[in-house]
Design a protein around this nucleic acid. Structure first.
Lengths: 219, 219
DNA sequence: TTTTAATTTTAGATTTGTCTAAATTAATTT
DNA sequence: AAATTAATTTAGACAAATCTAAAATTAAAA
């Protein structure tokens, strides 16, 4: 299916907003795409006509199977390029997103599959997100406690091991949630506590015991 | 200067058509870009407004200094990507042009300069064309067609002048590629055709017209 | 040097993706 | 359950990049 750059951007962002259960609202998509709700409605009609979308006027929308497949192709391309930019060109992982936003629209199949091989068929991108395979399947990611995470490697919180009240209260206090990105800045040998930075938040110290119970996706 | 993809394509093709002396005609540009002459005129107005073009109604046009600089940026990106696709991803050099046509429009300066370093700052692309440096200077390559090559002098194929399908097919048939070494064994005065020997391959006869379009490095 | 032919430009239309403002529908509150 | 508010859609407009057909200009030929 041949899609315009704009269509691809809409698909990708619908994918990121929707969950298994929930539909996406016009306003929320307009917000992330930085356009007007009216423009979103226009595009929804087009994507529905292309049979990529389950859309009912006034009741939100979500990708159907075909739409999801197309979205995953774009996400695959984006994450493979991010991986390339970091591991081959040595760019900082905070800076690669913007460039990958452009590269992801170059759609040659052969290019992407060769790039994949060249990178060693990675399953996780520099931001800790999984890279779908060429059939659109998201890899099942191994999880490790942040106590085993390499210093300065960004990772996404996947689960909490010991979900006691105390633990949850502490996480809440730090504002740490499943899905957050974090980086371990320093490990204190003395007691195993970690200095971490949660994306877009302040740095904080996590006690050694807690650190063994906060899991992140690992490759 | 921020240029649209279409503006970039126009600039690049004007650059390829113009020579030091000659101006470019509306029809010839329309032909290579596969659009109508009317569309070319529209675009010329836009490029002139952006001060990239020396354009006089009915009397053709050519890039000015700024236009040439912008064109060379695009050509640099194109040729670096071609180099990447061949040397890093292992693609055939006949197939990389189309993909590079898309990649060349990704304009991040940092991306291109890092790619350049990653590739070892190459000066020629897989088709044997020179790669402009980051200031837009073309490396000077001494090339001559094999029709001018001294008999029994070994030389390395640097580029192909007339990259038509027919020409490429013929080269493919002979197994002749950029980078191959060859020697001219005999020149037939009659029609300018040449008996050549490609290193580690059989001898073959190249027609006179083809011989004018196969370039080698001369010292 | 007229006339004819070729080239180029203009005029007006179309498509894509966007916008604002107004109208419609759904959700919430009293 | 009616009224208010919020979300969404429609209507109509616009810019970019293209097109076709017609007009204007230059170049070539008789």
């Amino acid at each position: 299916m041949k899609l315009s750059e704009s269509e691809e951007n809409h698909l990708k962002n619908i994918y990121n907003l929707q969950t298994d259960t929930s539909r996406v609202s016009t306003n929320s998509l307009a917000e992330v795409l930085n356009t007007s709700p009216a423009s979103i409605t226009d595009m929804l009609k087009k994507l529905k006509a292309k049979k990529l979308l389950d859309y009912k006027k006034y009741y939100g929308f979500k990708l159907n199977l075909l739409g999801k497949k197309e979205a995953l192709k774009i996400i695959r391309r984006h994450r493979l390029w991010e991986h390339f930019l970091v591991t081959k060109l040595g760019m900082k992982w905070e800076k690669v997103h913007e460039i990958a936003e452009e590269l992801e629209h170059v759609s040659s199949m052969e290019l992407i599959e060769r790039l994949d091989k060249f990178l060693g068929q990675p399953t996780i991108d520099p931001h800790g997100d999984p890279i779908p395979d060429e059939n659109g399947n998201m890899p099942i990611l191994n999880q490790i406690p942040i106590s085993q995470l390499r210093i300065n490697t960004k990772a996404v919180v996947s689960s909490i091991g010991n979900q006691t009240n105390e633990m949850m209260e502490m996480l809440n206090y730090y504002g740490l949630q499943i899905g957050d990105s974090l980086t371990v800045i320093k490990s204190f040998e003395l007691d195993g506590s970690l200095l971490i930075k949660i994306a877009r938040k302040q740095e904080c110290i996590i006690a050694g015991l807690a650190a063994k119970n906060i899991f992140v996706y690992a490759n």
